[in-house]
């Protein structure tokens, strides 16, 4: 079968699937595609594009970072104590045109939970026992173990943490601990501590639509858990993920005082 014919058949199947899904897509219903080797699981392998990205809030939150800086969470960050002061320092510096560096500007990684809104496409490779999420941005890889293992008890802190997950019907439930304290929650450099604990519910609303309901708990930095909602939409099967090597032409250098500068004339 040539590729065009195959694609046509897939498209027809997809249309049929979409039609079927329209009739019954609430949480807990059965999707059309099951994972080969683990037929009890929906199959979310494929290319996904991020949907909504929250923008600077009406109260001015994040404005100094650029009018389109993507922010995490619903409403203001529930920061307290030293973390609130840190956030105020970052915001004042940005408003003055001297933003602080973060692990993204240094081309290290976005980290969990900032990767939850992309901003670029993501490839999901689902195999029995593991879901691998590869962000186009910086080739950042997240491995979510779905083989039933227990969460790590004393993990080394990682950018993307230690991820274990399980399926509840059409919902992938993910638990993340062991997150580095130096990553920012979002482009407004909202801080968190090493006690950050993220839980996510990846709700398969239909074969091509995912809603992620996330909760970030941080007893050291937050007054109460902070919730967020994100959407991902399945992309065309023939989309080819781009190469994205962040250090290729990164002109954002970190100054000794922690702020960042731009290299010109390179």
């Amino acid at each position: 079968m040539n590729r065009n014919l195959l694609f046509g058949c897939l498209a027809a199947a997809s249309l049929a699937a979409t039609g079927a899904a329209t009739a019954a897509t609430p949480e807990g219903t059965t999707p059309q595609t099951r994972l080969y080797g683990a037929p009890d699981q929906p199959n979310i392998s494929g290319i996904w594009f991020p949907g909504n990205i929250q923008r600077p809030a009406p109260n001015g939150r994040g404005t100094g970072f650029g009018s389109l800086a993507p922010l995490w969470g619903i409403g203001d960050p529930p920061l307290k104590g030293a973390y609130l002061k840190l956030y105020e320092k970052y915001t004042a510096a940005a408003n003055a045109g001297k933003p602080y560096a973060d692990t993204a500007s240094e081309c290290k990684a976005l980290g969990v939970p900032r990767v939850l809104f992309g901003p670029d496409p993501m490839e999901i490779i689902q195999t029995p026992g593991q879901i691998t999420m590869i962000q186009e941005t910086g080739h950042e890889v997240r491995r979510i173990y779905t083989d039933g293992r227990a969460q790590a008890t004393d993990p080394d802190p990682w950018f993307d943490g230690h991820n274990v997950g399980h399926w509840e019907g059409n919902v992938l439930v993910v638990d993340v601990v062991g997150l580095r304290a130096d990553t920012a929650m979002d482009a407004a450099e909202t801080p968190h501590s090493d006690a950050l604990h993220v839980t996510e519910r990846w709700i398969l609303k239909g074969p091509n639509d995912i809603e992620v309901d996330a909760v970030a708990s941080d007893p050291k930095a937050f007054t109460h858990p902070w919730t967020a909602k994100y959407y991902w939409q399945r992309g065309d099967a023939d989309y080819e993920m781009l190469e994205d090597v962040c250090e290729d032409n990164n002109r954002n250098i970190t100054n000794p005082d922690g702020t960042q500068s731009t290299i010109l004339g390179k």
Binding site: G66, L68, A94, A187, E189
Partner: peptide
């Protein structure tokens, strides 16, 4: 969905501009 201005910026802050 991202919008017509479309700077889905994640790499660094735009505050220097």
């Amino acid at each position: 969905m991202i919008g017509s201005a479309g700077v889905a910026q994640a790499h660094h802050s735009f505050a220097m501009f």
